[in-house]
């Protein structure tokens, strides 16, 4: 986003809480991520009037209700393109999408490559709990192999996907991963994502104590490993290597990759400049092109 264009405000993390009560189950990792979001917003001093918080459908897609901001609660899988339109309409605003692994990578999976490669200037925080929670426990694109769940009583037939590898390949210009059990790291990564100009993606592991009985807090604690301090986030090859870590039984935590590229709104503004466009353009000139 373009922090510089916004009025900074002095607000404590808890002052970003809206008056809608949080509906998630006790012990759900999403509480930790939400706290990380509040903290990141506070540290950046984002004015809630200048923020759009947009989501699709799922447990994590309820997040906008709990944040003071302008917001949209849209359809399953469609938060990305809705946010793209909103961002292009108001390029100076802070735009954040929150959603789950099913919303983002299953039904909404067709939109992810395009937000990333077009470098839409928004932040996508994906709450990855490896399960469909709101529909009470079906396996998801990030569920572990052979997971027994609501519609997979004999174990799931699919291989899980690795969101980090996808987002790096798609061309995201900021790729990070966190764990809900480490809210400070979450806050840092989300803050970095919100500050980043371009498409920033933060994958955050989040335990679902109600429906995903295997990916427990302890499982994630053992799984995640902080990215070594000497990793250069500008090194794409190294980022890909680290992202592959999950296949070796470890999941990286931290900032994998960050680069600077023109954003979609900047590219579109360039087109307007190229044709000398302005609000008061004489439309008769367009009509006249169609005279016989």
């Amino acid at each position: 986003m373009s922090i510089a264009a916004l009025n900074k405000v002095e607000m404590k993390p808890k002052e970003y809480k809206s008056d809608v009560s949080v509906v998630w189950c006790p012990g759900c990792g999403h509480h930790g991520i939400l706290n990380g979001i509040y903290r990141a917003l506070s540290e950046l001093g984002i004015d809630p009037d200048n923020m759009m918080s947009i989501s699709g459908i799922g447990c994590s897609s309820r997040t906008p209700y709990f944040i003071k901001s302008y917001k949209m609660h849209t359809l399953h899988g469609r938060a990305g393109p809705v946010a793209t339109g909103a961002q292009l309409a108001q390029p100076d605003q802070c735009v954040m999408v929150t959603g789950g692994d099913g919303d983002g990578f299953s039904i909404g999976g067709g939109h992810m490559p395009h937000m990333a490669r077009k470098n839409v200037n928004l932040t996508y925080v994906l709450f990855d709990n490896g399960i469909y929670g709101l529909t009470k426990g079906q396996y998801s694109p990030t569920s572990r192999p052979e997971m027994t769940a609501y519609t997979t009583p004999y174990g799931g037939p699919d291989e899980p996907m690795n969101p980090l590898l996808y987002m790096l390949t798609y061309g995201a210009t900021y790729v990070a991963q966190g764990f809900a059990g480490k809210p400070k790291i979450c806050a840092e990564l989300i803050k970095g994502a919100l500050e980043h100009k371009g498409f920033s993606y933060v994958n955050i592991f989040s335990q679902c104590p109600s429906f995903n009985k295997i990916d427990t807090v302890q499982y994630y604690r053992d799984l995640v490993a902080e990215i070594p301090e000497d990793h250069d986030p500008g090194d794409f090859g190294s980022a890909m290597e680290i992202a592959r870590g999950l296949s070796e039984g470890k999941a990286p935590m931290g900032l994998l990759y960050q680069t600077s590229k023109p954003t979609l709104d900047e590219k579109l503004a360039e087109i307007v400049t190229k044709v000398g466009g302005h609000k008061d353009y004489d439309l008769n000139k367009i009509v006249d092109l169609y005279r016989p």
């Binding site: 949209m72 393109p81 809705v82 793209t84 339109g85 909103a86 292009l88 309409a89 108001q90 067709g110």
Partner: peptide, 16 residues
């Protein structure tokens, strides 16, 4: 990227 995205983008921009 598809018609769903196009109308979704339209909705987002309209909201904004």
């Amino acid at each position: 990227e598809d018609e769903i995205a196009s109308i979704a983008q339209v909705m987002g921009a309209s909201y904004a």
